[in-house]
Amino acid sequence: MRKLVLYVKSIFLLAVGIILLAAAPSLIAGDNGIKFSLIRYAQSVFDIISSLVTPSSLTVYTHTQTWAFPRMPVNRSIVFLNEVTERPLFPEIWGIVGYTLILLLASFCIAFTIAVFLGWMTELFPPVFKKTLLRISDLLEALPDLFFVFSIQLMVVWIYKKTGWLAANPFTSSREPSFLLPLVTLSVVPAIYLYRLQLLLSETELEKEYITFARSKGIKKSYIILHHLIKNTVSELSIHLPFIMLILFSQMVVLEYLFNMNGIMRILLGEQPSETRAMLLLLIALPLFGTVKLLRIVLKERVSHAG
């Protein structure tokens, strides 16, 4: 019961924090130019909260550009008409939120599985390999995320040019959304990070006494690694889960532009009322938070049972 209260409290505080962040633009942006104003900030926080209570009233602006041919007797010219229409946020948004969330959570699962699996494989190798692999992962971790994105995009196109085989859709077109490639690129950086962490953790774990004891009892090395080492390191990995989520989310912001995806950032970063922004941020951040908390509980439970 006490735990439940704690969870509710931290969810509540997270939501309040996100609302405070979503109202942040009004802190410095005046009608024309920069003007710091705390009163305006408080006002907009209050507005956001009061309109979040009735979610059906939230609206989203969509910008459209139409190609028009105005009637002209002499020369036919083309005009681009910019229009802004206001539409209700729900239920249209669920599809887009779902797309973004599925991408985030799926790549999270992929990264976690691959990192743990590779970590397990590495332990079976001789120690010399392990040292070099640690060095390589050190180097890879130091590379910026966009480097991987560009390389993967270039590689897919290069393979297509050479062999005519398109492994995955590198850009979203109006016909088909790209899914596989963003998924792969999203999971590369967290997978490397988790893999390196796993190697470091298992290095300290191997020196502990229960491993020596198990070895002296004559238990096979592969059994020890699978049943003791991996289990314990995975539960220690769970401390770093929020950080992984942050990496994923901040990469998602950029990937959406680079892959031209129809995700949530396009709406979020367009001209929108601040209460809609707050709602969208909440819709993404709360499931991520829930996943992290749930995984932590599951991983901890398993360890306490095993112990």
Binding site: G17, A22, A24, P242, F243, F249, L269, A285
Partner: peptide, 15 residues
């Protein structure tokens, strides 16, 4: 904690 779930780039872009 909200800074742990909302990327900094997003906040700066919004502001």
């Amino acid at each position: 904690q909200s800074f742990q779930y909302i990327p900094q780039s997003l906040i700066v872009l919004l502001v």
